[in-house]
Nucleic acid binder design. Sequence first.
DNA 1: CACATTTGACCCTA
DNA 2: TAGGGTCAAATGTG
Length: 299
Amino acid sequence: MENENLGHGRGKVIDELLRGRELANQLRNILNESGGDIDDNNGSTTPFAEHLLKEVLVTFTNSLLFLNNTQTSEASDMQLTKSEDSLESKYKSTSIVKERRGCYKRRKVSQTWEKESEYLVEDGHQWRKYGQKTILNTKFPRNYYRCTHKVEQGCKATKQVQKVQEDPPLYKTTYCGHHTCRILQSPEIIVDSLSPSHQSSMFLSFDNSFPTPAKQDCPFLTSPSYPSTSSSISSLQKECKQEIVHPPPSSSANDYYLSGLTFDDSEKDVTLSSTLDSHQLGVHIPDILYDDVLNWPLS
DNA sequence: CACATTTGACCCTA
DNA sequence: TAGGGTCAAATGTG
């Protein structure tokens, strides 16, 4: 009873923090678009505003990190159970399988985040296609993938890939759930590159649920314009204490990234740092697994 | 033969 | 009730 109230209050807090961060991001985008104009009128406005924005974003991010640090595994388990228990029950009871075919919870109640790219990228995980659907008002069918290790490891990660336009090609990948499997592949490579001249874009879906940064991406801490880094993380499991995410050379000064994610395999300690003004986020998280850091559920 | 993909059916949610 | 997510038999591939 008491825990439920606490959990509810915590959810509200996270909700508000996420909202605040999202609003700050929107403000940042506005600043980016109108930065030149502002500079013309007042040269000092933009840098100062950007500085304030960074501070706000860091505050939100730090708060979210600390909040999630307290209940990581618990919330993660609850989230997965809630979103996919219907599927679980189906696999456990074959007698129900044939009667309850197609029983599932819709994506809305689970963690999702999206990534748009001009090319298909290998995100370091093995995916198995399990469906394809024609979606209303779309030219191209949507492809459904689940983790190859779903059966043997119970990995519940799924993704949907949909081509949204032909020329230039644009693919929208929606990740749902996060990987619980430990078998990871080669670093992220471009699978289909017709026009790799532009950065892929990535954004979060905030509809009714908190998107969870996962191994594919870490939208929680990265700029919306930076590609995913999942397999970089996987390589880290063997090579401890490496930086895994770096901003592209062309990145603007007001973008900030998770520039340092340091793992100490022996102690299972993780240190996060950002590129922002050389600040460290100041988060030191003991006793958690390395990939849990990027899988913090926010609800 | 084992595993992946295709594709129509099934069924939940809005 | 339509749309969309998943299942699973059929089929393809190495």
